[in-house]
Computed example of a mutant assay.
Amino acid sequence: MKDFVFNIKSYLKDYNYIWKYKLVWCLPFILFLVILDLISKAIVADKMVLDGAAVKFIPNFIGFQYVINPGAAYGMNAEKIGLTISIASLVTLFLIGIFIFIKNKYWLIPINLMVAGSFANLLGRAWAPATNNGVKGGVIDFLKFEFSFFGSDSYIFNLADAWVSIAVGVIILILIIYAILEIIELVMRKKDKNKYEFYFDIKNRKQVLFEVYYQKLNIKKEDKMTYNQYLKSNQELSREWKEYKKKE
């Protein structure tokens, strides 16, 4: 058991979390989305009437209607506000955990959106006004589609919900791209093993370069790689691959 705990501690200590990339690029993006969502909710709470009539914004596309949803998505668990907040908190912590450990820059795009959406809604519950029935802890929703597509006109949401929905779309897109690349790599491996091995080597070297450059912020000056050096090295790897293909 002691060996197991020691191995876990060593793994966590030595793991490359690419903190530099997450602090320089991801965190500002997440904070921007969270702040934008909270500002939009504050404006709606100040300027609109709770449970009032819908207001057209873009005709036949989207409008505004201010409601407070005490439940989760689609009003689930609306009568169990404590359970809803507990689940939302666990989901947010789970997403933050994924954010901490993931180091693929493409998968970080939807994770950033999901963390921003989940965290913004959780924060929003802390200060949102009570419903007309006096229930506290709900989340402000105000966007409503004015067209019917699988019941879209019956769903009222907010920007944080939109971030999560966009994240799901990005995940589907990434999965499709990965599936296509896997097929291309499989064909390449069967057709020309040497070409595949060279391609795989370039791919791995690019990932290593990315992880090394974005490993941490505090690096000794003599070991520090500038952003221009990083870009140049990345371009050189791309050039190697292009030159290899030209030789065929």
Rank of each mutant, 00 (worst) to 15 (best):
M1H: 11
M1Y: 10
Y11M: 07
L12M: 13
L12W: 04
D14M: 11
Y15I: 03
Y17D: 03
K22R: 07
L23P: 02
V24K: 14
W25K: 08
C26D: 13
P28E: 07
P28W: 05
L36C: 10
L38S: 01
I39G: 02
K41P: 01
A42D: 08
A45M: 06
K47F: 09
L50T: 05
L50K: 05
D51L: 10
G52D: 01
A54D: 09
V55E: 14
K56D: 09
N60M: 07
F61Y: 10
F61I: 14
Q65N: 13
V67Q: 12
I68P: 01
G71V: 02
G71A: 02
K80C: 08
G82S: 14
L83N: 08
S86I: 00
S86T: 13
A88N: 14
S89M: 12
V91Y: 06
T92S: 14
L95N: 14
G97Y: 15
G97C: 11
K103Y: 10
W107L: 15
L108E: 01
I109C: 05
P110F: 04
I111A: 00
M114N: 04
M114Q: 05
N121K: 09
N121R: 12
L122A: 07
L122N: 03
L123A: 11
L123T: 05
G124P: 01
G124A: 04
R125G: 05
A128M: 04
A130M: 13
T131D: 03
T131H: 01
T131N: 06
N132R: 13
K136W: 05
G137E: 07
V139A: 13
D141M: 04
L143Q: 06
L143W: 07
K144Q: 12
S152N: 08
S154K: 15
F157I: 07
L159D: 00
L159P: 00
L159S: 06
D161Y: 00
W163Y: 12
S165C: 13
S165V: 08
V168C: 10
V168P: 05
V168G: 08
I172W: 08
Y178T: 13
L181T: 10
E185V: 09
M188Y: 10
N194A: 10
K195A: 09
K195F: 06
Y199C: 07
F200N: 12
K203N: 10
K206G: 11
Q207M: 10
L209N: 03
F210A: 01
Q215A: 15
Q215L: 08
Q215S: 15
L217A: 06
N218K: 14
N218G: 12
K221F: 00
K221T: 12
E222N: 08
E222R: 08
M225D: 04
T226W: 01
Y227R: 11
Q229P: 05
Q229V: 05
Q229I: 01
K232M: 03
S233I: 02
E236M: 12
L237P: 03
S238A: 11
E240S: 03
E240L: 03
E240G: 01
K245H: 04
K245R: 14
K247R: 15
K247H: 09
E248G: 15
E248H: 09
